[in-house]
C-alpha cells in the first residue's frame, strides 16, 4: 500500500492531487446545484393548530408578520423572497417573482432582507439567499425553493384557487 502511494506520488505531487480533487469537487457540487436550484419542495410538517394561521405565530406567515409588521397577504399566494446584499441570483429572482405577481391575480411578492431579519431567518430555517417561500391564502408555507427559480417553476407551485391562469 505504501509502495503504491509512493508510485502515485512519483507521477503526481501532493499539490497536483489537491488541484484535481478541488476541481472534481467543484464540478460535482456545481452540477448538483444546477440540478436543485430553483426547485420547489413541499414544506416539512408545520405545527399548525386549528386556528386561523394569520394570527398563529406557528405559521410561516405568522412569523413573517411578527418580524415585518403589517404586510398584505396575497389572496391566492404570497411569494416571500429572502435576499442579501451579496447575492447575485437575488436580482434575477426579484425580477421573476415580480413578473409572476403581476401576471397572476392574487399573488403578492414580498422581498425580505435576510441580514436585517436574522431571527426570522433562523425561525424559518433559511440557509441561503435567494430562498423563496410560497405561502398560501391561509398563511401556511406550501413550498420553498433556494436558488433562482424559473418562471414556470414558480407558476407550477402557486396554489390553485378557483381562477385558473
Amino acid at each position: 500500500m505504501i509502495r503504491a502511494g509512493f508510485r502515485f506520488n512519483r507521477y503526481m505531487s501532493t499539490g497536483a492531487w489537491i488541484a484535481v480533487v478541488a476541481i472534481v469537487a467543484a464540478l460535482a457540487f456545481g452540477l448538483f446545484r444546477l440540478f436543485t436550484d430553483g426547485r420547489f419542495r413541499g414544506t416539512k410538517e408545520l405545527p399548525v393548530s386549528g386556528e386561523p394561521a394569520e394570527t398563529s405565530a406557528a405559521s410561516a406567515w405568522g412569523a413573517v408578520a411578527d418580524a415585518l409588521g403589517d404586510q398584505v397577504l396575497g389572496e391566492r399566494a404570497t411569494l416571500v423572497q429572502f435576499s442579501s446584499a451579496f447575492c447575485a441570483p437575488c436580482r434575477a429572482t426579484r425580477r421573476i417573482l415580480g413578473e409572476v405577481a403581476e401576471l397572476v391575480p392574487g399573488v403578492v411578492h414580498l422581498e425580505v432582507d435576510a441580514e436585517h431579519h436574522l431571527d426570522l431567518v433562523r425561525r424559518l430555517d433559511i440557509l441561503r439567499t435567494p430562498t423563496t417561500l410560497v405561502i398560501d391564502a391561509a398563511g401556511n408555507e406550501v413550498a420553498r425553493a433556494s436558488g433562482a427559480p424559473r418562471k414556470e417553476q414558480v407558476l407550477s407551485v402557486i396554489p390553485a384557487v378557483g381562477l385558473e391562469s
Binding site: A22, F29, S84, F86, C87, A88, A114, E115, L127, R128
Partner: peptide, 27 residues
C-alpha cells in the same frame, strides 16, 4: 485548494460560494 473550489464554481457555473457562506456566518 479551497480557493480553487470557489474559483471553479464561479468560472464554470457563475456560482458565488463566498456569497452563500455570508448568510450562514451572519446566522
Amino acid at each position: 485548494g479551497l480557493a480553487l473550489v470557489a474559483a471553479v464554481l464561479n468560472a464554470v457555473f457563475r456560482f458565488c460560494l463566498g456569497c452563500e457562506i455570508y448568510l450562514l456566518i451572519r446566522r
